[in-house]
Amino acid sequence: MSNTNYASAVAAVKAMESSLLTQSELEQLINTSSAQERANLISSKRGTGNETLDLEAAWETVHSYAPESRELEILLYRNDFHNLKAALKAMVADRDPERYYIKPTNIDLPEFTKLIRAKEFDMLPDHLKETAAEAYELLTRTLDGQLADSMIDTASLAAMQKSAAEFGGDFMKRYADLMTVCADIKTAYRCSKMNKPRQFLETAVCGCGEMDKESMIRAALGGTESFLSYLETTAYSEAGKLLSESAAKFEKWSDDRVMELAETARLQAFGSDPLAAYYIAVEAEQKNLRIINICKESGADSETITERMRKLYV
């Protein structure tokens, strides 16, 4: 009876997947002429009057099915670390961080704000405490927000990899690696364009098993051509081509790779992987709906919007 965990949760998630938008429904949405028409289309799909699948609600559902799964919490690490950035910067600027927070998150935000303000970093969740103390010290010493942001972003990727190795399965390890590779490629390319020094690159690039940190830094220090040539020698040569065309194309490529990975997880009948895949799918759907709304508001044509659509799960 091994590997039959979460049989109930996986079946429930598969039932919920039927409320996700399909490719043809997305095309219908792209061809709508007003926000009201889009809202009506989505409402008729969901059949509940809900226009959007709320990401927070999706997380609550997934988490309620597997409350003890620390593996799933890795999905929210990016939000946790973003909230850390927001809290630290708000503290230094003496502002209220509440409006800068992203949800869902693994942390209790009011308590988190209090702890940050009191500089009680040791009381923070394990994956945040060290980074919080280091980032605070860096921010107050250098007053360089960009450097602190880079440091926190890198720490977030490293925490994902560490937690995935510690209590994650194969899917979560591949997810953490993929997120790291995509973030590192983007960061290293930007740094190569802006001629950032080695010291900055060492803080901003995380590295993982697939993409060695030192090789990436060396390639980025040689300029964009050198970095793109380096990517040609890796499994991510396509990413390099897209990156040189536009950042938006690279972002879409990254999101599509994550969705392809989620597709492998959703085929599992048991375990927490399909739950993670469902959450990733809801995230992608929200991103697609946001892109449609923004593009429609700015008057973009249907072809342009279609090009920007992320891969779908269903």
């Binding site: 049989a7 079946a11 039932a15 919920m16």
Partner: peptide, 21 residues
């Protein structure tokens, strides 16, 4: 007993979302 129990878990998950099934 083990088999029926396992399917029961999965079935309960589906019925919790869509009782018509």
């Amino acid at each position: 007993a083990k088999g029926v129990g396992l399917v029961g878990e999965a079935a309960a998950g589906v019925v919790s979302v869509d009782p018509s099934k």
